[in-house]
């Protein structure tokens, strides 16, 4: 997702990481979200039970949706990187396009194309914002100091005696 980030695993393995990260994010976030929502929508006295059943019913599904999206995106990202041999914002846009398209494939080619374009634009906006932020907050590259001039070769007068 972010480019030139060397704190992440190399490409085939980062897919697992992204799958798990997106799933955990969706499941935990969905747990909080649906926990609150379920409690609010339950009658008084049933709040805890309602919250629990809402979490059980909906949080894993949300996690699954997130996970499939993130994992598919990461897989396409790796494939695009491997094919183009480049690291730039177009990778994310292309893989967003492909992800959106393949997730909506069952609804027909027309709908898939629309979803793909939507996802591509979304990812393009993300990448654009990322580039802008980078440019805004980029620290100036520290000037590297030149090494001191190598000391002049000391050439003593040769005397082998």
């Amino acid at each position: 997702m972010s480019h030139g980030d060397h704190s992440r695993d190399p490409c085939p393995y980062v897919i697992l990481n992204d799958f798990g990260g997106a799933f955990s994010m969706g499941a935990i976030g969905g747990g909080i979200w649906h926990g609150i929502k379920g409690a609010r929508n339950s009658p008084r006295g049933e709040r805890f039970v309602g919250s629990m059943s809402a979490i059980k019913a909906r949080a894993p599904v949300l996690g699954g949706n997130f996970g499939v999206w993130g994992g598919l995106f990461s897989t396409f990202d790796c494939a695009v990187k491997g094919y183009r041999q480049k690291e730039d914002p177009w990778n994310a846009i292309i893989s967003g396009f492909l992800t959106g398209g393949s997730l909506a494939l069952r609804a027909g080619p027309r709908s898939a194309f629309g979803s793909a374009v939507g996802c591509g634009i979304l990812l393009g906006v993300f990448e654009g914002v990322g580039v802008l932020m980078n440019r805004m907050f980029a620290q100036p590259i520290p000037q590297m100091q030149l090494p001191e001039q190598a000391a002049a070769p000391s050439a003593p007068a040769v005397s082998s005696a």
């Binding site: 697992l16 992204d18 799958f19 798990g20 990260g21 996970g67 499939v68 994992g71």
Partner: peptide
């Protein structure tokens, strides 16, 4: 198997592997 950078990495990779196998 994979080098880990802490508990978040463990969580992500472990969950991802299990989720994908379940899928």
């Amino acid at each position: 198997v994979l080098p880990s950078r802490g508990w978040t990495d463990d969580l992500c990779v472990g969950t991802g592997t299990t989720y994908l196998s379940g899928l």
